[in-house]
Amino acid sequence: MDERAVAIPSQGGDELFAKYFAEITLDVVEEHTFLKRAMEEPGPRYVHLRRSSIGTVTVPPHIEENQPGKLVSQVWTGHPKVDRTLFIMDRRAENRLREVKAVGTQKSIPMLRGVACSKKNYGARLGPEPFGDSFRAKYLNSQKKSPVATAPPTLMDKTDD
């Protein structure tokens, strides 16, 4: 059995394991959020450390996302470098899932513009003809042109007198 795997706690919170992680400095807001989560929650919500078949964390470490619908499968390790990295990866996964959910529920739908100018192609327009310059008004609701005859001229049009 490898002695490094035995020396590492099952949660991955010692110096031998932490040397694989970089020092992370969080801004004031994120640091506050990290400290609050570390006190109130058992671990990161969306990520966990990869484990070997015997249940210990792998060396070199690898952070994986939890299976869909499964939250908090990793407890905080107690080591600041490892926990901050888990927190950052957790926040990244959380923000990505939030964006996907917002698109799925149509909260943030990008509005496509038909013309490169700054005119909006959505929303209420002021005036007597609110959608007078829209595509529908220009082409679909416009006056119909008389059909152009495509048949060859008939012999009756010619006069042989």
Rank of each mutant, 00 (worst) to 15 (best):
D2G: 08
D2N: 13
A7L: 15
S10I: 09
Q11F: 12
D14R: 06
E15P: 04
L16M: 11
L16G: 07
K19L: 15
Y20E: 10
F21P: 00
F21K: 00
E23C: 12
E23I: 15
T25V: 15
L26A: 00
D27G: 09
V28W: 06
V28G: 02
V29D: 07
E30P: 01
E31D: 00
H32W: 06
K36F: 11
R37Y: 05
R37Q: 08
A38G: 05
A38C: 10
M39K: 15
G43P: 05
P44I: 02
P44G: 02
R45Q: 11
Y46K: 11
V47G: 06
H48N: 04
L49H: 02
L49S: 00
R51F: 07
R51G: 06
S53G: 02
S53M: 06
I54M: 09
G55F: 02
T56K: 12
V57Q: 02
T58M: 13
T58I: 15
P60L: 00
P60K: 01
P61W: 01
H62Q: 15
E65Q: 12
E65L: 11
Q67F: 14
K70W: 06
L71Y: 11
L71V: 13
V72L: 08
S73P: 08
Q74P: 09
W76E: 06
T77W: 07
T77L: 07
H79I: 04
K81D: 05
D83P: 00
D83K: 07
D83E: 00
R84Y: 02
T85Y: 06
L86I: 04
D90T: 00
D90F: 03
R91F: 03
R92W: 14
R92T: 14
R92G: 08
R92H: 13
N95F: 13
R98H: 07
R98C: 05
V100E: 10
V100H: 08
V100G: 01
A102S: 06
V103W: 13
T105I: 08
K107R: 12
K107W: 03
S108M: 14
I109W: 05
P110S: 11
P110E: 04
M111Q: 09
M111I: 12
R113I: 10
G114A: 10
A116F: 07
S118C: 09
S118V: 10
K119C: 14
K120C: 07
N121H: 11
N121Q: 12
G123F: 03
A124K: 13
A124E: 14
G127P: 02
G127C: 01
G127T: 01
F131W: 10
G132W: 02
D133G: 14
S134E: 01
S134G: 05
S134I: 03
S134M: 01
F135K: 11
R136P: 05
R136V: 14
R136L: 15
K138G: 01
K138E: 12
L140Y: 01
L140T: 03
Q143G: 10
K145L: 13
P147W: 07
V148M: 07
A149R: 15
T150V: 09
A151Q: 12
A151F: 14
A151L: 11
P152H: 06
P152V: 12
T154P: 05
M156P: 08
K158W: 14
T159F: 15
T159A: 13
T159L: 15
D161E: 13
